[in-house]
Design a protein around this nucleic acid. Structure first.
Length: 210
DNA sequence: ATCCCGAGGG
DNA sequence: CCCTCTGGAT
């Protein structure tokens, strides 16, 4: 594990969130939009959205149809638009229009699950409630045999036991970067992988996830 | 054709 | 546990 962390750090020195935002509210909205969608696409979408609805009070009173049009290209646009307005409404009604700092509060917001909540807590507030387990973190953690769980919550429990808390946030960011650039789902580029020597699946064939 | 920095619902 | 929502990228 120590080897993995140091090599990831060397390969991806900057472990920052790629979603453009100017406030916790905007990161929360951007992360909701990022489901099954690239960051680049989200970053193309949010400027117009935030120009029109810069904060929770504004978005809470928005017309859902207008929001649908603004977020259309991110996919799942009907549910995302409804969740964005519902999320903003809940912030206004229950949290004074601000983003709460507790995981248990965040996950009750429409469209906000554990993954989104952990991203916001880690990036905006520096709080590591858990490890962000998205599709990349889950896939690579299974390939490296850090977990055998396909369920994100169970995989997160394994990773939290394996990693010091101080590394939880940066570990997720770096695995996500690694997943996009090298260890992708379809055709991982093992020849360029800095984790090659510690990866059980190198030279074995198969995905390591069977 | 298959996957993507998910979440909600049955 | 499964299904659905959806456009975009490869």
């Amino acid at each position: 594990m120590r080897t993995v962390l140091s090599r990831l750090k060397a390969a991806y020195p900057v472990a920052e969130c790629a979603l453009h935002h100017e406030s916790p509210f905007q990161l929360l909205a951007a992360t909701i939009l990022s489901a099954q969608c690239t960051d680049a696409r989200v970053n193309q979408t949010t400027p117009a959205l935030f120009a029109r609805f810069p904060d929770a009070p504004a978005l809470a009173t928005a017309d859902v149809k207008e929001v649908e049009t603004l977020v259309q290209s991110c996919g799942f646009f009907r549910s995302k638009a409804k969740n964005l307005v519902g999320m903003a409404t809940a912030l206004v009604e229950r949290h004074g229009g601000e983003v709460p700092r507790r995981l248990e509060d965040l996950v009750t917001l429409p469209g906000v699950g554990r993954k989104t909540a952990n991203v916001v807590l880690g990036v905006c507030f520096g709080i590591a409630e858990g490890v962000v387990v998205d599709t990349h973190v889950g896939r690579i953690s299974r390939r490296l045999a850090f977990t055998t769980e396909s369920d994100a919550v169970k995989a997160e429990r394994d990773l939290c036991e394996l990693l010091p808390r101080s590394r939880w946030v940066s570990f997720s960011h770096r695995l996500i970067l690694h997943g996009r650039s090298v260890c992708d789902a379809r055709k991982p580029r093992c020849g360029e992988c800095v984790l090659r020597s510690v990866c059980p699946r190198v030279g074995v064939g198969g995905t390591g996830e069977e």
